[in-house]
């Protein structure tokens, strides 16, 4: 039920992200969603891709630090209040969200959200109990 998210360490210098994306492009790996987090000295590029295992392998071969972690992908109605509803379910169950990001493609018509939470298994259960739809794969 989880999606595999790649987190890539990037130094804060010109071309650092391009070194990672070049590896992905060369291996025909498609990026479905992405977000960056940064400080003055370094950043983390977080990605949802179609072939996460292959991507991680290729990145490591190029001496790029990568971490693969579980995240939850959910599919919501593209209407006011739908994301709020999810956050309310989680907070009422005592589950903290570490970070989240949204993306459009490839499921037109719905709002797609990636959630990284502290207790992923409980989160999955309470969201299922509340009939939230999941994104199961991104091919």
């Amino acid at each position: 039920m989880f999606l595999k998210q790649l987190s890539i360490f990037v130094e804060n210098r010109l071309g650092a992200i391009a070194e990672a994306t070049e590896v992905l492009a060369a291996n025909n790996i498609n990026i479905r969603a992405l977000t960056t987090a940064d400080t003055t000295d370094f950043g983390i590029l977080r990605l949802i891709v179609d072939k996460p295992e292959l991507a991680a392998k290729k990145l490591r071969e190029n001496s790029i630090i990568v971490n693969v972690s579980n995240v939850i992908g959910i599919k919501l109605d593209d209407t006011p209040g739908s994301f709020h509803k999810v956050l309310k379910i989680l907070s009422e169950s005592g589950i903290a969200v570490e970070y989240s990001y949204a993306f459009v493609s490839p499921f037109a018509g719905s709002a797609n959200i990636i959630l990284r939470v502290q207790d992923e298994h409980t989160a999955l259960r309470v969201l299922t109990d509340n009939n939230i739809k999941f994104i199961e794969e991104v091919n």
Binding site: S7, F9, D38, T39, I44, N67, S69, R116
Partner: peptide
């Protein structure tokens, strides 16, 4: 040089190491 052993998806953890 950072190693994978020390790396997670969270900025907070990197800042702690630093």
């Amino acid at each position: 040089e950072l190693t994978e052993e020390n790396f997670t998806s969270e900025i907070r953890r990197l800042e702690e190491i630093n």
